[in-house]
Amino acid sequence: MGTTPMARLAERVTGALNALVALVLLMAFVPLLLVVACLVRFSSPGPILFRQQRIGRFGVPFTIYKFRTMKVGAEQELQDLVRAQGGTVGAYMKVDGDPRITRIGAFLRATSLDELPQLLNVVKRDMNLVGPRPQIPDEVVTYHHLHWRRLLVPPGITGLWQVSGRSDLSAQQALELDDIYVKQRSAFFDTRLLFRTVWVVLARRGAY
């Protein structure tokens, strides 16, 4: 994938179009972004944006942006919360009824508004609008050799995993869907996934 001159040109054009669309969306969403930023800022102490290292195309790390949905120091609290539930910390760990999530944060997650700052990542060409889930380094090191294929394309704000269950999926199911996406990737497929994402977000399916 992306080895011929035409394929490389197509990738550059796709990336440029994604960045242009993301920039237009950012400008259109300025009022909404300001409102959400104020809600996050005044709902709990801490920064407005959450920053975390993720792994992008070809294994290149980048900083992802989201609206902060948890209390400051949430990552340090994870081990205690997991141990209290009788488990151990793992790369794909989720905590039931996570008390670290703020009230505003729960709303932002349910509506996917917390992901809007990722449009900045698309403008910076770290991500595309559609693609595999951008994962943290600890998740990537657990990959089976077949999972590395997902790093051949840029990660996305949405993707096949987003419209197929999101948080309702197991880690293995999400990886399998990402692999299917890479195999079937096309401009038409991406467009279909974008339209399906709108419906999934409005219905709040698998968002928590």
Rank of each mutant, 00 (worst) to 15 (best):
R149L: 15
D80Q: 14
R149I: 14
V21D: 05
Y65D: 04
Y208K: 12
G159T: 08
Y181L: 07
R150K: 14
G59L: 09
A19D: 08
D98W: 05
R204I: 05
Q184I: 00
Y181W: 11
L25N: 04
N121T: 08
R185G: 00
G165R: 04
P154I: 06
Q76W: 05
V141H: 11
A84G: 07
L193A: 02
Y181S: 06
P45Q: 01
T191V: 13
A84T: 08
R68D: 11
R149H: 13
L116F: 07
T111S: 15
D168I: 06
M93L: 13
D96T: 14
R149M: 14
G87C: 03
G87P: 03
E139Y: 05
G87K: 11
P31K: 00
P47V: 02
V36Y: 02
L116M: 01
G159F: 07
I180T: 14
T69L: 04
F42I: 12
N128C: 15
G15W: 03
V130S: 05
L193R: 03
L169A: 03
R41D: 00
L119R: 07
V140Q: 11
Q76N: 10
D114M: 03
V72L: 12
M6V: 14
D190F: 00
L193Q: 05
M27H: 06
V182S: 07
S44T: 07
Q135F: 09
L113K: 03
F62C: 04
L23M: 12
T4K: 04
G131S: 10
G73Q: 01
